[in-house]
Write a protein that binds this DNA or RNA. Sequence first.
DNA 1: GGAGGGGTTAAGTGCGGGTTAAGGGCAGGT
DNA 2: ACCTGCCCTTAACCCGCACTTAACCCCTCC
Lengths: 224, 224
Amino acid sequence: MLTLLLVEDDLDLAQTLVDYLDLEGIRCDHASNGMAGLELMRRGHYDALLLDLNLPRLDGLSVCQRLRTDGNDTPILMLTARDQLEDKLDGFRAGTDDYLVKPFALQELVVRVQALARRRSGQAQCLRCADLEMNLAERSATRAGQSLKLTPTGWRLLETLMRASPAVVSRQALESAVWGEEMPDSDSLKVHLFHLRKAVDAPFPTQLIQTVPGHGFVIKGPDP
Amino acid sequence: MLTLLLVEDDLDLAQTLVDYLDLEGIRCDHASNGMAGLELMRRGHYDALLLDLNLPRLDGLSVCQRLRTDGNDTPILMLTARDQLEDKLDGFRAGTDDYLVKPFALQELVVRVQALARRRSGQAQCLRCADLEMNLAERSATRAGQSLKLTPTGWRLLETLMRASPAVVSRQALESAVWGEEMPDSDSLKVHLFHLRKAVDAPFPTQLIQTVPGHGFVIKGPDP
DNA sequence: GGAGGGGTTAAGTGCGGGTTAAGGGCAGGT
DNA sequence: ACCTGCCCTTAACCCGCACTTAACCCCTCC
């Protein structure tokens, strides 16, 4: 069963979409402005994002860009009335996967979103890097077969790093992935990273979590 | 560098597409009927398939279906004049990833196919000049296969130079790219450039970073 | 011959990052 | 309602590296 996030400020349209998707057996959360959508994306995990472009508080293109710079690679489908070539190119430059011009047939939306999700589902509910494994569904993590004990924040950190791997995640991206907009005053990221390393790396010979000085952190691949 | 397969029986259109994609730095093989396309797909490896629907010998929908039942999950983009909803739904049911109605803008084709390929290979964005290569996502740089050790400032300098290449970057532009508004009092750019050269150029016979007296600095192309 | 732009080198320092400990809030159990 | 334990925040400390700075040198062009 798919779970989507719809970010759309036209409440009538949003209701129509959510109802129709429900009939097709697709769950769909809803946010009515850009900031709320971004926040939900950072917290939860969705199979795809349906994104309007004309949004209050934070426009769709910015939402898309921010997610991508966070290292979030959830499939994105932009829904918009802007039908000019330049608009489409801007959308793809911002990192969207598909672009559907309003008005559109609901059935086309469904098959397109299914095509996106199908491609992603290959990655399934399990993240892996070397001998480190995370089972999203069971919310359990193991390294070399041994189960790891993670705090909630540690979990979010590790998930963000593993999703991005082998790409580097900047400090800023990590912080916004964990805390969203309201970041703690002091630099508590390093403390959490310290504890995470103690849980994930300390008992083992190879250190998977590595520092990229002046920029951020990586988890070593391979991750197929 | 991407490699695509185009299956299209209109030879004029095919030639136009292949030429345009070449300009964009995308290689593109071509087959003019369904059977030949299927054969090439089974033999070689492509980053994506551009598939016409009206084809002699074996129509596009069948090609798509057969590939999917083969277990081939190469991204497919259907190109066709059929613009009816039912046609699109048939396309997605057959297992395509995207569906573009003729006539279309060449640029839209390019960004869509790039979006598909990006998702499949997760291939990171890369800057390249001669044998020097920068992987933005992994934050790693190599020259002639050897990995380079760069400081944060060195990295920013090199990135700026490579993005601009083969254009010259003025001192001022370099400084503002690295430090933004608050530039250091003294001329520390030259010190950083010295260290950068030691990391990038010193161990190699050809010096990529070159001075343009009185103006700034360049990195030698080619950079596609 | 002098001046200025650029290259080279070395020294001090400040900041980013690792480590540790202490305090507070929240939840679950008694 | 109180206690207990966990987890998150904050702050303080240390270390090492990278950035700044300044000095000197060379070359070229007035």
